[in-house]
């Protein structure tokens, strides 16, 4: 592996951690504590992120539903997942946590709604 420079985000120090070496022989420099090693190891071996985006709905008053992956997915698969998600349309009014896809193809995670599409707190007529 060629050398990689990362910014550790475990604490405000934001150490620049340099990673070099291969497989079990990874070398870390620049970190000021152990957290930097764990962070950098994860980032160079299997970086994962929660993907948040929107999908289309069938409801003109709520045209887009915000969604996220239920847990982190591989960073390298994000664009692939976006492609899958883009083809989905919501036909029912959902609430946060409602499952849209049990398993997103290519991952082991579900796709869930994050917003409440049902009626908001309704206006009260004042007289």
């Amino acid at each position: 592996m060629e050398k990689r420079e990362l910014t550790c985000i475990q604490c405000p120090l934001s150490c620049r951690v340099t990673v070099s070496g291969e497989g079990d022989q990874l070398k870390f420099t620049g970190n000021q504590c152990k957290q930097g090693i764990e962070y950098a190891r994860q980032e160079v071996t299997n970086p994962t992120r929660t993907l948040t985006t929107t999908i289309a709905t069938a409801f003109p008053d709520f045209p887009l539903l915000p969604v996220r992956t239920a847990g982190e997915v591989p960073l390298g698969k994000i664009f692939e997942i976006m492609k899958v998600i883009r083809a989905v349309q919501v036909e029912q009014r959902l609430k946060p946590g409602d499952v849209i896809l049990e398993i997103i193809p290519g991952t082991d995670k579900a796709l869930i709604a994050t917003a409440d599409m049902c009626e908001g707190v309704s206006a009260v007529v004042v007289k």
Binding site: T50, P66, T114, A115, D116, G120
Partner: peptide, 15 residues
């Protein structure tokens, strides 16, 4: 680590 709409939903439900 909630999304914005999820965070708001909890407070809206409380209200």
């Amino acid at each position: 680590k909630l999304t914005g709409p999820e965070y708001a939903y909890r407070d809206i439900e409380a209200v």
